[in-house]
Design a protein around this nucleic acid. Structure first.
Length: 809
DNA sequence: TCGGTTCAGAGTATT
DNA sequence: TCTGAACCGA
């Protein structure tokens, strides 16, 4: 016990040992949040206040759930197998499998990932002959998920105009299609589980009695439905221990509702609000920047990070002429750090949007510096893996039309679009699945379709008794996928992934099956006869569930593996252990930390992103992120970026940047000017005004006047960067790139000379909008546009060939 | 059925 | 500028 609580600071200790009551823990970045959560769990169990079965701990990502499991089993001599620790989706999935009859689902229902869902919607629109120009599938997907996350079924959505009424109709049709095919999308997992608990008193009260303690991680990221789901489970008097940080709320755009924190405090009458403010990650100057920046946000619960680690190094700020030079400087800086003995994997380059990585990757690649980019396709999302999974899904559930269509003609079997149309007509007429309709379709296609159906049936019959990995292997072979990729000249990697899928199945059986181990989760042993199950229940001494409520706790290994594949998309890239510079978006960096961090592209329009600031309409009739709220979320994003750094932090921006094929000139980010000057060290001269006299002689003169030593060290002067660029590129033999920077510069200044007499930061007057300041310039000649901030009249893009602007001041 | 061309769109993303 | 999706011709 004493060792469990040792080394906790005062606030952490207070949080861990709170009595069984609702609590809100405001856990700042780097304040030991995970530690508090897991120690709380361990403390509750080891002091006998609750049994492992009486706890529900929920996270957003599998990674976080895994970490909690691992740390808990390291602290306590218990197996976390069967404990209710998992993601919202994972736990809902488990509950729906156990009570599938009451939830109105087949026990082996399949889970659609975002990609599958979009495909299902496209297919729906096609069958209904809906104009997908007027109803873009993506918008509909957004509409459906948005409604579900608000807990709304088609009948409950407010639809005032013709358009939204049509959307609701399509939502209804989509639901019917899913139900018919026995599939469930991500949002449906939560909504269906919520409805199960809401409508079924017996089941609800059972779980309410069972879970005495509910722990929630990243509470600021919960959406409204998740909040209500927690409310149902906690309704029987459980103590809710919510951990979160409103300053790190960066997912409003995908439905997160920070307001849940304040709502929780109010509605649950939280008496214990504990702030974890001591930071164990970063040095003082870095924290000082984070604290000062976030003071500019108005809607906060309030919190100030501190450290006893000392000020450390100043935060370095660098102004580049353009994005390429920014990248070049970064490469030089990374080289310097590596020379000094920093590990590459402890260095991170962060950016606001994925598109920014290209230039940086190019520079790193040319310099021969190993790097690793986060994001992109993950293992279970790869086309070949999805193909194999579609075959497996068909074995488990022949009604899955989506899976059917994905592989009926892959590898090619001469079943073309026309045959499929005939098949779909036949299925619709008979009211059956495509699979069933294969027997009913007339004509020449019939033989081929029948052969495909036979293939699936044979596979099902002949693999039914095989262990999971062998089953997968058989399917990969006999479906023809293996042969197909064998024959393809660039199919080797895909073949490799299919072999990896067999491996993943083997690993799943031995290690990862925990999540869907219903007998263990429900507190019964797998060997128990069904009749006995209901007497045993969950081991917590609660009243048992009646026999007709609890489903037979059996799920085939294949069905379990398929849910696993949908709920956990896997790693995005190999090379985890390699010593490489880490590249990622700021969003992806949340929760991570590095010795040194580069935050790049700190320019107005990019970061804060203009869409977030301006309140751009998104989809028909929808406006999100209006003004202030959007800006505050961007600022929290900056806060997250800053607090990733342990020892050294670099902030950089560029006067000019290639964006959508055009050069764009922007002001430096307002966030830079919200940082405390005393904590900063400018590597380039700090311009007084945020305005950047892009490419002007005066500016270049000032730049070249600074200490040559710091120029060299910083990767330097423009000329220096050019040199480095040239030699590095040449030595790698990518000669075509040599001197691009010069070319770029020449063109840029030419453009500048060719008659755009405007500078970013310059005051202008417009007949209608009044006076304003140019915040960005984009494009060339006839296409040239300027973005002007007119204050109260708003920020506008104006074509220079049209708008009449007068210089002011 | 594939491969080339054309065109629009371009923000962040877990399950 | 670059990408992905849709479309068309052989």
């Amino acid at each position: 016990m004493s060792s469990l609580l040792a080394h906790l600071n005062e606030a952490q200790l207070a949080a861990v040992t709170l009595p069984a009551e609702h609590a809100l823990i405001l856990a700042g970045a780097g304040s030991g949040k995970t530690r508090v959560l897991t120690t709380r769990l361990a403390w509750l169990i080891s002091t006998g206040q609750v049994s492992p079965q009486g706890v529900l701990a929920v996270t957003f990502t599998n990674k976080a759930a895994r970490e909690m499991n691992a740390r808990l089993s390291a602290m306590l001599p218990i197996s976390t197998r069967g404990m209710w620790i998992g993601t919202f989706h994972g736990l809902c999935n488990r509950m729906l499998r156990a009570h599938h009859r009451d939830a109105g689902l087949p026990q082996a229902f399949q889970i659609l990932d975002a990609q599958d869902q979009l495909a299902a919607i496209k297919r729906l629109l096609k069958t209904l002959n809906v104009d997908d120009e007027r109803f873009p599938p993506r918008n509909l997907q957004h509409f459906v998920n948005g409604a579900k996350e608000e807990g709304l079924r088609p009948g409950e959505v407010d639809a005032h105009d013709e358009y939204s009424r049509r959307c609701v109709e399509l939502y209804r049709a989509y639901e019917e299609q899913c139900q018919r095919e026995g599939v469930v999308d991500f949002a449906e997992l939560l909504l269906r589980c919520h409805e199960l608990l809401e409508r079924n008193q017996l089941i609800r009260e059972h779980y309410q009695r069972r879970f005495r303690h509910i722990l929630v991680d990243e509470f600021q990221d919960t959406n409204r439905l998740q909040y209500r789901w927690l409310g149902l489970l906690a309704g029987g008097g459980a103590a809710v221990f919510a951990v979160g940080d409103d300053d790190q709320s960066i997912y409003a755009f995908r439905g997160a509702n920070v307001g849940n924190m304040a709502a929780f405090e109010r509605e649950y009458r939280v008496r214990s609000l504990i702030r974890l403010e001591q930071n164990y990650r970063s040095h003082g100057n870095i924290l000082n920047c984070a604290n000062t920046l976030i003071l500019n946000n108005r809607s906060r619960l309030g919190k100030q990070l501190w450290t006893d680690a000392g000020d450390g190094e100043p935060v370095r700020v660098y102004e580049a002429l353009d994005d390429r030079q920014e990248a070049q400087w970064l490469v030089e800086e990374v080289r310097g750090l590596v020379r000094e003995g920093w590990a590459r994997s402890d260095l991170a380059v962060l950016y606001r949007s994925n598109a920014q990585s290209r230039v940086i990757e190019h520079a790193l690649f040319s310099a021969g510096l190993p790097y690793r980019v986060y994001g992109g396709l993950r293992f279970f999302e790869r086309a070949e893996v999805k193909h194999a999974l579609a075959y497996l899904r068909l074995l488990e559930n022949p009604a899955d039309d989506g899976a059917f269509l994905r592989v009926v003609n892959f590898p090619a079997r001469g079943i073309g679009a026309r045959s499929l149309e005939a098949l779909q007509d036949a299925a619709r007429a008979a009211g059956t699945s495509l699979f069933e309709a294969t027997a009913a379709v007339p004509g020449a296609a019939a033989t081929r379709l029948a052969a495909f159906a036979r293939l699936i049936q044979d596979l099902r019959a002949q693999t039914a008794r095989l262990p999971l990995p062998e089953l997968v292997e058989q399917v990969v072979e006999r479906s023809g996928l293996a042969a197909h990729y064998q024959a393809e000249k660039e199919g080797q990697e895909r073949l490799e992934n299919l072999r990896e899928l067999v491996n993943a199945a083997a690993v799943f059986l031995t290690e990862e099956g925990i999540g869907l181990d219903l007998p263990a989760a429900l507190g019964v042993s797998a060997a128990t006869e069904p009749a006995q199950v209901f007497a045993l229940t969950d081991g917590s001494g609660n009243e048992p569930l009646p026999a007709d409520v609890l489903a037979a706790p059996a799920l085939t290994p294949l069905a379990a593996f398929l849910s696993h594949a949908s709920l956990e998309a896997g790693d995005n890239q190999a090379g985890e252990g390699v010593d490489a510079v880490q590249l990622m978006t700021i969003h992806a960096a949340k929760g991570l930390e590095f010795d040194a961090v580069f935050v790049t592209g700190l320019e107005e329009g990019l970061f804060p992103h203009e869409n977030a600031v301006a309140g751009t309409p998104r989809g028909p009739g929808r406006v999100t992120d209006p003004g202030e709220a959007g800006l505050e979320e961007e600022r929290r994003l900056m806060y997250v970026a800053i607090t990733r750094a342990r020892q050294r932090l670099y902030l950089s921006f560029a006067q000019a940047r290639m964006l959508h094929g055009q050069t764009r000139y922007s002001m430096r980010s307002r966030f830079l000017d919200e940082l405390p000057e005393a904590a900063l060290k400018w590597l380039t001269p700090r311009m007084q005004h945020r305005a950047q006299p892009a490419w002007s002689e005066g500016y270049r003169g000032a730049w070249e006047g600074i200490d040559p030593r710091s120029r060299g060290r910083a990767g330097g002067a423009h000329a220096g960067a050019r040199q480095t660029s040239g030699s590095a590129v040449r030595s790698r033999g990518v000669g075509a790139d040599t001197g691009r920077l010069d070319e770029h510069e020449r063109r840029a200044s030419q453009r500048f000379d060719r008659g755009i007499p405007w500078r970013v930061g310059q005051g202008v007057a417009h007949a209608r909008f009044g006076e304003g300041v140019i915040v960005a310039i984009e494009g060339d000649g006839e296409d040239a546009r300027v973005q002007v901030d007119f204050g109260r009249s708003g920020t506008k893009w104006l074509a220079l060939s049209v708008a009449r602007l007068e210089p002011v001041g």
